[in-house]
Amino acid sequence: MKRSTIDIWVGVFVAAGFVGLLFLALRVGNLTFSTSQTYQVQAKFANIGGLKKRAAIKSAGVVVGRVSDIHFDNESYEAIVTFNLDSQFKFPRDTSAKILTSGLLG
């Protein structure tokens, strides 16, 4: 087989591979270059149940942010959950947070 034919096929292969990667990243992994600003809020909970990092924060059912950190406070013996909220959403000072389950696989 001639060299140039090989080059074309390898080029097609590499291009297809990158298209596959891009498909995984954009369509499957939903990679977004989000430039949206966030602000951090902390909340104390007596029991966080099964809350995990990256869990969605919802207000009236709409996702407004994600949990960024969970740790245990050794002075008040409570869990401190830090979450990043999208800065386009403003909440009043007396907003409270609840931990809810979202179904079998949520």
Binding site: F13, V14, A16, G17, V19, G20, L21, L24, V28
Partner: peptide, 15 residues
């Protein structure tokens, strides 16, 4: 160089 491209294509095809 080929292996990660093949794996990405495999996953994309599988999905």
């Amino acid at each position: 160089l080929s292996m990660p491209l093949l794996a990405a294509l495999f996953s994309a095809m599988g999905i």
